[in-house]
């Protein structure tokens, strides 16, 4: 699915990622944890193709193709989805129109016909139920006036609509109360299949109670310093990150 080899990236001339290696196979869930500033969000943004992040070395293949050569919208249409840590507001653009445009761009990319209004509405209702999203939200402008929880649900709703092959959840749990967390996690789990994979970026073990990872990686100073099974998350929860810091030196 995704192969990252020796990836280096910088922003504003400052090197953030310093040689990441990671392989994700279909059906796998990988959690990436690590202290603030370790490069978790940078990794997510580099994979999604955000402009101000400059890849200085390394390679990434997604579904066997070079990912880094592709425009962000092509990566998205190939099946890479990023659930944003801070979803962006777009005033005046109704959520329903936005996601309809996105869905149809994906369909055209796959050589399928655009959805009719009826088909689209049916699909939208179905997917909204999945994340218990209120109907009125799709009539509102994209993320405008949404609460923190609604914004995160909206990200998972979009993920459900676009059915990505690889979903990157960037701190999807931040700012969520326990009920919203459960809803969001249930949504993510419902979309899980042997053909799809996900990368769950989080600070806390809490989310991983619901979305159970196959692997947990610890990112520290731009490198993956430890990889283990889901028990690693529990260990982190107990001991914090200090032991990693002292083990790796500062």
């Amino acid at each position: 699915m995704l192969k990252i080899k020796n990836l280096y990236a910088s922003v504003d001339g400052q090197e953030i990622l310093k040689g990441i290696n990671l392989e994700i196979k279909p059906g796998e869930v990988h959690a990436i944890m690590g202290p603030n500033g370790s490069g978790k969000s940078t990794l997510a943004n580099v994979l999604a193709g955000k402009q101000e992040y400059e890849v200085t070395a390394g390679e990434v293949t997604f579904l066997g193709e070079n990912l880094l050569d592709k425009a962000p919208e092509t990566r998205a249409k190939d099946g890479l989805f990023l659930s944003f840590q801070y979803p962006v507001e777009i005033p005046g653009v109704p959520m329903a129109n936005f996601i309809k445009t996105a869905v149809n761009e994906h369909r055209v990319h796959r050589g399928e016909k655009e959805l009719t209004a009826g088909q689209f509405l049916k699909l939208m209702r179905e997917k909204m139920e999945l994340v218990e999203m209120k109907t009125k939200l799709t009539n509102r402008s994209v993320n405008e006036g949404f609460s923190g929880g609604e914004k995160k649900k909206n990200e998972i709703f979009q993920m459900a609509m676009l059915e990505p092959k690889l979903a990157i959840l960037d701190e999807t749990d931040s700012g969520l109360d326990i009920d919203a967390l459960r809803t969001v996690a249930n949504g993510v789990n419902a979309l899980k299949s042997p053909e799809t994979s996900s990368i769950v970026i989080t600070h806390y073990q809490r989310l991983l109670d619901y979305i159970v990872p196959d692997f947990v990686h610890i990112l520290y100073h731009g490198k993956i310093v430890k990889t283990a099974g889901k028990e690693l998350a529990l260990e982190l929860e107990e001991k914090g990150y200090d032991w990693i810091k002292s083990e790796k030196g500062n």
Partner: peptide, 11 residues
């Protein structure tokens, strides 16, 4: 805003 749209497959 533009990147958010791009990430959803919108050029």
């Amino acid at each position: 805003q533009i990147f958010y749209c791009n990430q959803r497959g919108i050029d």
